[in-house]
Amino acid sequence: MNPEVYIVAATAIAVGLILAAAGLGSALGWGLISAKTIEGITRQPEMRAQLMTNTFIFAGLMESFPFIVLAMAMWFVFGNPFLAAIR
């Protein structure tokens, strides 16, 4: 078989694994952020405003992670550097 087929197939599998890991990591991050915020509010209800502010800041940072990983995965799909190496 043509080596390009193997490279494209391996890249497709790798991109799928990368996106799955990004989704799982983001979901775990959201769960931890939410759980710790609720835990902090139940321990000190007077800190609710400050905890919510921190939660929204960290949630924004957590949201950027999957988009950065998606951009990297799309680079492998559309601008595969491994295909250029064999041409």
Rank of each mutant, 00 (worst) to 15 (best):
L51E: 03
T53S: 12
E63A: 10
L70H: 06
K36G: 04
M1Y: 10
S26L: 04
I13G: 08
M62S: 13
E4A: 12
I13A: 15
W75T: 11
G31V: 06
P3A: 02
I41T: 00
N54L: 09
F76S: 01
R43G: 01
A9G: 05
S34G: 13
S64C: 08
L70N: 05
N2V: 02
I68T: 10
M47E: 15
I33G: 04
F78V: 06
A35Q: 14
T53W: 00
G16C: 07
M74N: 11
A73E: 06
I38M: 13
L61A: 10
E39N: 04
A12T: 13
M62K: 11
I18T: 11
F67N: 04
G23A: 11
R48Y: 01
R48G: 04
E39K: 02
L17K: 10
L61P: 01
A27Y: 13
S34A: 15
M52L: 14
E46S: 10
R87W: 09
A27H: 11
I18Q: 10
Y6R: 05
V69G: 01
L83T: 07
V5G: 00
R48S: 12
S34V: 13
M72L: 15
M47L: 14
A14D: 02
A21E: 05
G16N: 07
A14V: 07
E39P: 00
L19M: 12
A73L: 06
V5W: 08
L19Y: 02
P45S: 01
A71Q: 02
W30S: 08
A71E: 02
F82Q: 09
I38T: 13
P3L: 04
V69H: 02
V5C: 02
I13E: 09
K36Y: 14
S26K: 08
A14I: 11
M1R: 06
V15C: 03
V69A: 11
L24Y: 15
G25V: 09
A12S: 14
I13R: 04
K36T: 14
L28I: 14
F78S: 06
V77N: 05
L32S: 11
A73K: 08
A21D: 02
M47F: 11
F78A: 03
T55F: 15
T11C: 06
V8I: 12
T55E: 12
S64H: 03
M74R: 07
A85V: 15
I7C: 02
P45N: 01
M1V: 05
I41M: 04
V15G: 00
L28A: 09
E63M: 00
V8F: 06
